[in-house]
Design a protein around this nucleic acid. Structure first.
Lengths: 349, 349
DNA sequence: AAAATCAATGAAACCGCTTGAATTAGTTTT
DNA sequence: AAAACTAATTCAAGCGGTTTCATTGATTTT
């Protein structure tokens, strides 16, 4: 049905290879004008368009990037992270004239066996949108070593795998810096799940932020927890219990995400601590929890679309060789000041 | 890098075609057991996986469906329709072991020229998520006649193009039926943009709903408008002005979407009409506007994920020949009863 | 035991396009 | 006018599979 290069060759009365060369040649290429015109005219006449598959097979380049997403509980609509990320990916993919093929799996466990079929020539590189570090996929992909890939939303230790992630550490340091700039010196941390990489990174950022301000790190200011409301609430109360009088009580709380921050807010308000007067609070993420109720929470906004964009860009750069496989990118977070941070009371008096 | 069928053939000491046949054969196929085992073992040993591109080229089937989305203002995150639809598509695509390739364009106008490259063998069929009827694409695709496609979210008149859409007409009739079942006989309609197909369909449904209840259609009960808040508000006031005394005033309003319904609510409340006691209101869509404020609006829920699922399913059926190209599907809407509908006052007395 | 039948495998063409080497045509050079 | 280049075009071998058809070897049939 669709015209192939053969019909064009016949129409233009030249060989197949001439057609191919004329049609692919750079503008400055060397062909008899007559020939070129004849070919172009013939191509138009028969409505020729190259078959991407055949071309891909011989060029070994499909002009397509693959996106692997786990789709167990999450989906584009239920998980804002996936949606935003996909948005970013599609954006630069389109911009750089690539196609995007999506591979979905019920879970990451099921992904491993079908991995080979993702490296089957369908696409030139893989984007892995991994909610949490997954042990199997990455080594498997590295072992194959036949397709470039970049991890999205995770920052492995490895120096050989490419990844793009939010700059957890930098953002955490910036959060602390914001509190410091307001005059806080006693800054506590309400952490998330200790096994998650993001938690470690945010904790490191917290330390660096203190260090930068030459504030000593005190372990009694650091409250381990989970990325959940309840832990935020409980830890806030725990903090009050640990520091009954205001003299040594922290004046600010860096919560490792917005849900924790909301929990902490509620806990403190319940305990008649006024926010931000008696306690400043800063969260992380800038998701729905930061603005669902008052007080609106000051937070570090993660730009996930940008993560998606950078990831696609990095992958394409790796594919075309302008960057090395081990490259990685950290996209900075943005400080969003709202109602839960202010100068400490001591400063105001 | 990746092992090809050649290595397998060499390892197993058989010909290429034997390898291909053994590896593709249905379970009941006829091969010497020894050969089969030798081939399978060799394949496993060299880590063979078929190259989808090469296979696609010769089989002329890529096991992939294409999804064309306009991405001008809308995106997966900003347009809940796109997101939900994509969700549904990915769901059945995965379930039926297909890949999904996404083609994004800045606008529908820009899609036409690149259309040929979407039919270039990359995928076996096309899903067109068209926000509003677009004149050029469909005829172009029909003219090419080299790739099956189905329209998503639009119901063209044509009987030759496949489509999947929400059942606007049926849902509108159901909305009216709901009001009728509550005892309403005087039911007004607040319409949307007259040029949109959905509006025509909902209007038809309104008429059918009345017909089914043997209620005469009165043109003075029908208020043309736009799918916007303001028109809803204005038309509600217009209705009160047109029917100053309650004796002949409609007792229920079928609004062609939730924004209109919200506008109408606000207009009526402003005019001290109590909802639903003095006026029942039913909307359409069940989107954020239905539940953003009180009163929570009774509405017809569109299941867009289901639209996506059906569309992908239909396309795959057309591809594998189990359905005809002209097929279409209308997915039913669901009545969501909330706070804005009740029996008319006359009945309550 | 020769002829006929059938199951298992292999040879080769093909899918549509690319590409490097080989060939032909067209200019210069001497 | 032959030799030496260069520019323009074609040949032919892939890319990695699938598939038709022919071939071989084993099993029946008579």
């Amino acid at each position: 049905m669709a015209a192939s290069i053969r019909e064009v060759a016949r129409e233009a009365n030249v060989s197949l290879s001439t057609v191919s060369k004329v049609l692919n040649a750079k503008p400055n290429a060397k062909f008899a004008l007559a020939t070129r015109e004849r070919v172009v005219a013939a191509a138009k006449r028969v409505g020729y368009h190259p078959n991407a598959i055949a071309r891909g097979l011989s060029r070994k380049r499909m002009e397509t990037i693959g996106l692997i997403m786990a789709y167990d509980q999450a989906s584009v609509t239920t998980d804002p992270y996936l949606g935003a990320c996909l948005d970013g990916v599609l954006h630069v993919s389109k911009q750089r004239h690539q196609k995007t093929v999506i591979f979905t799996e019920d879970s990451w466990e099921e992904t491993l066996p079908s991995l080979p079929s993702y490296c089957d020539g369908h696409c030139d590189g893989l984007l892995l949108v991994i909610p949490r570090s997954n042990s199997d996929i990455v080594p498997a992909l590295e072992a194959r070593n036949d397709i470039p890939f970049v991890l999205v939303g995770d920052s492995p230790e490895s120096d050989t795998v490419a990844f793009v992630d939010v700059d957890n550490e930098g953002a955490a340091a910036a959060a602390v810096a914001h509190l410091v700039s307001l005059g806080h010196r006693k800054i506590a941390a309400l952490c998330g799940n200790p096994e998650l990489r993001s938690n470690t990174q945010r904790l490191n950022g917290y330390r660096k932020g203190l260090e930068a301000a030459e504030i000593p790190y005190l372990s009694e200011y650091v409250f381990p927890g989970q990325y959940r409301y309840q832990e935020g609430y409980d830890n806030a109360l725990g903090l009050l219990a640990r520091f009954p009088n205001t003299s040594d009580r922290p004046t600010a709380l860096f919560c490792f995400n917005d849900v924790i921050a909301r929990g902490a807010c509620d806990g403190l308000i319940k305990s008649s601590i006024s926010i931000p007067d008696e306690m400043s609070i800063i969260g992380f993420d800038d998701n729905i929890h930061a603005t669902s109720r008052t007080p609106l929470i000051t937070t570090m906004r993660q730009d996930i679309r940008s993560v998606g964009r950078c990831a696609a860009g990095l992958l394409l750069d790796i594919i075309d060789g302008s960057r090395k496989q081990g490259s990685h990118l950290l996209v900075p977070a943005e400080l969003i000041v709202r109602e839960t941070t202010s100068a400490p009371q001591s400063r105001k008096d």
